[in-house]
């Protein structure tokens, strides 16, 4: 398999009157051909910045990027015909209809006009295509955006939060559409916060936090690497929860106190839990390994799990606390 999209050591620092903000800090990413690739990260972690840089809208401060084996931004004009993209809920000129908007884009990009009606059909806007975009609902605008990205019948499709504002039916249709497109050989890069969705449709993921990659690889691999140690512990008496959590932390475990149980991770053997608690005369009522989903892996990796009594601020992530990252995990 060849890489359709490669990013190495990407750096981007925004400068404004308020000072500098390091949005990307040596970010790496690889997407293989024919995959549906999930691009995940908390708010403000740099996903949109990465995609904008990739598509030549903003200038990076360092690093290299390649699309379809060609260096960008130098070769962007040549590869642009094979890349369809939407970046963060694109807006369209409100007084034109969807059909006008798309046919103007088709003209500008040298795409045949018949394709306009094809994509309108594909995203379900056929009957409303003559209405002014201004009168569209959020989800309808989003569908139009997806239609504009599909117009070129691209080899690489980049969608930044395409599900934003879609209804449940729309999300499911989008999922089927992605799969169909991938089966036809298109590579899809999908950024989204709906992790259940990502887990269902993506072959592989890249997780970004604070401008750096924290995990990457096939969805199953990423899950497997973090599936090991999380255990739900229920005690006979809920009043012992806090004290027990302290005892387990002394063993080196990470413990999250829930209202009637503990979530314990970072211990090789679950038996260590029962032994330690029994020694304090606390008895375990339930000890069950938790099958991780992408969401919990994401929260763990990015350090953005909610903590009771705290309001996490947007830039508070695992990377911000841990300082410089030790390269990418995963691969």
């Amino acid at each position: 398999m060849s890489a359709v999209l490669e990013i190495q050591g990407l750096q981007k620092t925004y400068r404004s009157r308020k000072g500098v903000r390091r949005a990307l800090d040596g970010f790496d990413m690889v997407v293989e051909a024919g995959q549906v690739h999930g691009f995940l990260g908390p708010n403000g972690s740099g996903k949109t910045t990465t995609l904008r840089t990739l598509l030549g809208l903003i200038r990076p401060n360092g690093g290299r990027m390649a699309i379809l084996g060609r260096e960008v931004p130098q070769s962007l004009p040549e590869v642009a015909g094979s890349v369809g993209a939407i970046v963060e809920s694109p807006q369209f000129f409100g007084n034109f209809s969807a059909r006008d908007t798309l046919s103007l884009l088709a003209d500008a990009g040298g795409v045949e006009r018949v394709r306009v009606d094809e994509v309108l059909e594909l995203v379900g806007l056929r009957d409303r295509a003559g209405d002014r975009v201004k009168t569209y609902s959020l989800g309808m605008k989003q569908r139009l955006a997806v239609a504009s990205a599909l117009l070129k019948n691209p080899r690489l499709l980049i969608l930044d939060e395409p599900a934003n504002g879609l209804d449940p039916g729309g999300i499911r249709e989008m999922r089927t559409l992605m799969r169909t497109l991938a089966e036809s050989g298109m590579t899809v890069v999908l950024s989204s916060h709906i992790l259940g969705e990502i887990q269902l449709i993506c072959d592989s993921v890249t997780i970004i936090a604070a401008g750096r990659r924290v995990a990457a690889g096939a969805v199953t691999d990423v899950l497997a690497q973090h599936a090991t140690s999380s255990v739900r512990v229920r005690l006979e008496s809920a009043s012992d929860l806090t004290a027990s959590a302290g005892a387990l932390r002394e063993l080196g475990a990470q413990v999250v106190v829930e209202h009637d149980h503990l979530m314990v991770s970072g211990l090789a053997q679950p038996s260590a839990i029962t032994r330690a608690l029994a020694a304090r005369e606390v008895y375990v009522a339930e000890l069950s390994p938790v099958s991780v989903d992408l969401e919990s892996v994401f929260l763990e990796l990015t350090g953005t799990a909610p903590v009771a009594g705290e309001h996490r601020q947007v830039d508070q992530t695992v990377m911000a606390q841990a300082g410089p990252a030790q390269g990418g995990w995963g691969q």
């Binding site: 598509l55 030549g56 809208l57 962007l76 694109p90 500008a108 990009g109 070129k152």
Partner: peptide
């Protein structure tokens, strides 16, 4: 619209 156009014609 300008951004969209520039995505099309970089």
């Amino acid at each position: 619209g300008m951004m969209n156009l520039l995505l099309w014609r970089p």
